[in-house]
């Protein structure tokens, strides 16, 4: 990420809001340093180089359109694609149905919070696969993205040039969140296997 960041920052300084919009849109599909760019954008706005309201508008717009694109593609072609690549069993499994129910039951908090933590794309895909209502998804995506964009841009505006010191904290926070997710997933797998083993022992007795 550190090797592409200088190029991305140059891109922002050269092309302004068009760059902000395209980075925000593409960050849904590619591993781009969108949070850092938004932080830097807030600092640039504080220095008078960009306008904070335009920054928030174009960044939110890019995020929202990116999320909607991902959701629509997953909704229309997601299951078909998964079946084609040999995951038919997964689609037809009980766990998948439970996941769909969970996503639809907790649409609001799941979609909203995933805009703030680095799980946005995964939730977009799962929401699409679960055939979540488009209006519901759009409402929470718009709300979540606006809150996220305003929050990060204002932090950048507040810090001014000190934003460069804080990027390491954001990177560390991202790593911590990723570790939590991995621990959670591994613990789920472990307890599931343990439960299965215990059931087997009970039935053999």
């Amino acid at each position: 990420m550190h090797t592409i960041l200088p190029s991305v920052l140059s891109f922002v300084l050269l092309y302004g809001y068009a760059a902000i919009f395209s980075i925000s849109y593409l960050a849904v599909f590619l591993p781009l340093p969108q949070t850092v760019v938004l932080l830097a954008g807030g600092a640039f706005a504080g220095q008078g180089y960009l306008n904070i309201f335009s920054l928030i508008f174009f960044s939110s717009l890019g995020n929202i359109l990116g999320d909607l694109t991902c959701f629509i593609l997953a909704r229309k072609y997601g299951k078909e694609l998964l079946m084609k690549i040999g995951l038919k069993k997964l689609i037809l499994s009980k766990k998948f149905t439970e996941m769909e129910t969970f996503i639809n039951d907790t649409a609001g908090p799941t979609v909203f919070i995933s805009r703030i933590i680095p799980l946005g794309t995964i939730v977009d895909i799962l929401s699409g696969l679960s055939k979540m209502s488009f209006k519901k998804f759009m409402a929470y995506v718009i709300a979540g993205n606006i809150v996220y964009t305003i929050g990060v841009a204002l932090v950048g505006l507040f810090l001014g040039n000190a934003w460069q010191n804080v990027t390491s904290i954001f990177s560390a926070a991202g790593i911590v969140i990723a570790i939590i997710i991995v621990i959670f997933a591994l613990s789920r797998i472990y307890f599931h296997k343990l439960k299965h083993r215990m059931k087997k022992t009970e039935s053999s007795n």
Binding site: L13, F158, L159
Partner: peptide, 23 residues
Amino acid sequence: YYRQPIVVKDISSWMTFDYINKV
């Protein structure tokens, strides 16, 4: 307590001359 101004030692190679002139 906010809007830490840019100083000369923060100039980096990714900055444009347009940005440097303005800030």
